[in-house]
Amino acid sequence: MSMEEDAEVHTKTGKKSNVLPLWGNERTMNMNNLILTNIQASHYFKMNLYELKTYHEVVDEIYYKVSHLEPWEKGSRKTAGQTGMCGGVRGVGAGGIVSTAYCLLYKLFTLKLTRKQLNGLLTHPDSPFIRGLGFMYIRYTQPPADLWDWYDEFLEDEEELDVKAGGGQVMTIGNMLRHFLTKLEWFSTLFPRIPVPIQVIIEPRHSTERQTLLQD
């Protein structure tokens, strides 16, 4: 049975297909152009990550190499003297050292993860950063209408991770996901915009859940 036929069978039987949809730009992963350019030009992505061919190899690399979830490594951005939009126009030189986390996030994208593989990241027992990149993969690539369904069961997850380059910003998985659902900003970049009709559905759900927690 082909992948397409398997997906069709899953759909007809009411199960979710193992083939994940890709929302938005299927080449850029909906990333900021400056970040993407720096990823594709980096020695680490072109040489080291090129050698990794399987999902399990990439997961192992995340385990050993990722220590935060910012797009840039600490202190590598040279923004002094830049004003307005010129930083985006100058290309790679206006960037910095793109983070290992974002290089591996884009590497996952090139593998075109299955639903089973993505769920494997979200529940991985060995590192919160493996889980964090899984949730970030969802935020960048999945249809906005599906975000709540992906994140809902993890909104009370108490596992902690330090998301800041160099350390100093510890948050729980649950709080990170609330940020993903309600804020566009993530350090020095922006997530894909959630369409207003979907955001107005997410916000009341989020508020209701927080009120319920406070009452408990």
Rank of each mutant, 00 (worst) to 15 (best):
T123I: 07
M176F: 14
V89W: 06
G91W: 07
A94C: 07
F180A: 11
L177Y: 03
N175M: 14
E158P: 02
Q142Y: 07
G120Q: 10
E153I: 06
S207A: 13
E153S: 14
K112F: 05
A80M: 06
G84H: 11
G132T: 03
E209A: 15
I198L: 05
S76L: 03
V163T: 14
G167W: 05
L184T: 14
C86F: 09
G174Y: 04
N175Y: 09
K107D: 05
I138C: 08
Q117V: 03
K164Y: 06
S207T: 13
H124F: 09
T182N: 09
M171V: 14
L118G: 03
R178Y: 11
G132Y: 01
E156F: 07
L177W: 02
T83M: 07
P128K: 08
L122R: 08
D126W: 05
G88E: 15
K116Y: 08
P125T: 08
V89Y: 13
D157N: 15
I173D: 06
N119E: 15
G167T: 05
G84W: 04
G174I: 10
T123F: 02
L184Q: 14
A80W: 10
Y106H: 10
Y151V: 00
G166W: 11
L161M: 15
H179A: 09
A101H: 01
L181T: 02
F191H: 11
P192E: 08
E160Q: 14
E158W: 06
T172N: 03
G84C: 03
F187Q: 06
E153D: 12
P144C: 10
A165I: 04
L133Y: 01
C86Y: 10
D152I: 00
V98Q: 01
Y106T: 06
I201W: 10
N119Y: 12
D149T: 08
E203I: 10
L181G: 04
W150Y: 11
H206W: 12
D149Y: 12
T208R: 12
P143D: 07
H179T: 09
H206D: 15
W150S: 04
G93E: 14
T83P: 00
T83K: 13
T79S: 14
L184P: 01
G96F: 02
G95D: 00
I138D: 07
V163Y: 05
K183Y: 14
K112P: 02
E153Q: 13
V89M: 13
T208N: 12
S127T: 11
P143G: 10
A101I: 07
F187R: 02
